[in-house]
Simulated scan of single mutants.
Amino acid sequence: MGENEPTLYDWAGGEKALTELTEAFYRQVLRDDLLEPLFRGMSPEHPHRVAQWLGEVFGGPKTYTEERGGYPTMLAMHLGKAITEPQRRRWVNLLQDAADEVGLPADPEFRAAFTGYLEWGTRIALANSQPGASPVKQAPVPHWGWGVAPPYLP
């Protein structure tokens, strides 16, 4: 792909598609015995905020940073949660199921990039959520592309 390659955000279908994705996903989460305790009492705005995060990560507008504060806000949402590996894995699986449910593109290139970010991001969230973790407090929102993990050098 060259200069005119679409962002993952555009390829996915933009804000509408990511909002549908997160709404479908969190409906599943609230019915899931393993994940529901982590999200019990979440704000009705939570799915929309996660859609904004994913949108920014995948090359869309910087709405999450402008309206929510970017990476430090996302980090704060995970601190002290003590996410387990089974919960992390279930989160990834349910988000992939939701992607199928709402009809996100199913081509191998998109799904590989999408799943790559889910694996990368949830492993960081798991580590940052552990008691005694000392994560990087300030970092940019990652920008994910077609099959490339973004390097971060503090």
Score class of each variant (00 low, 15 high):
R123T: 11
L104A: 01
N128P: 04
G147L: 02
V148A: 12
G147T: 03
L79G: 09
L104T: 03
M77H: 13
Q87P: 02
A98C: 10
A113Q: 04
A139T: 05
V141R: 03
Y117P: 04
A76W: 08
Q138P: 00
W146C: 05
E85S: 13
M74Y: 12
T122P: 07
V148M: 07
H78N: 02
W144R: 02
V148S: 08
D100L: 12
A127M: 11
I124K: 10
L94R: 00
V141S: 04
V102D: 01
P135K: 08
A99D: 06
A98E: 08
N128R: 12
L75G: 02
F110H: 04
W120T: 12
E85G: 10
A139Y: 01
V102P: 01
P140Y: 09
D107V: 09
A76T: 08
P86K: 05
F114V: 07
A82G: 13
L94H: 00
S129R: 10
E85Y: 11
P150C: 03
G145M: 04
L75Q: 04
P150M: 04
R88E: 05
H143K: 15
L126K: 13
R123C: 03
T84L: 05
V141G: 03
L126R: 15
G116Y: 09
G132S: 02
A149P: 09
A133L: 09
T73R: 12
D97Q: 15
R111E: 06
M77L: 15
F110R: 01
A112W: 10
E101R: 14
N93P: 02
R89N: 10
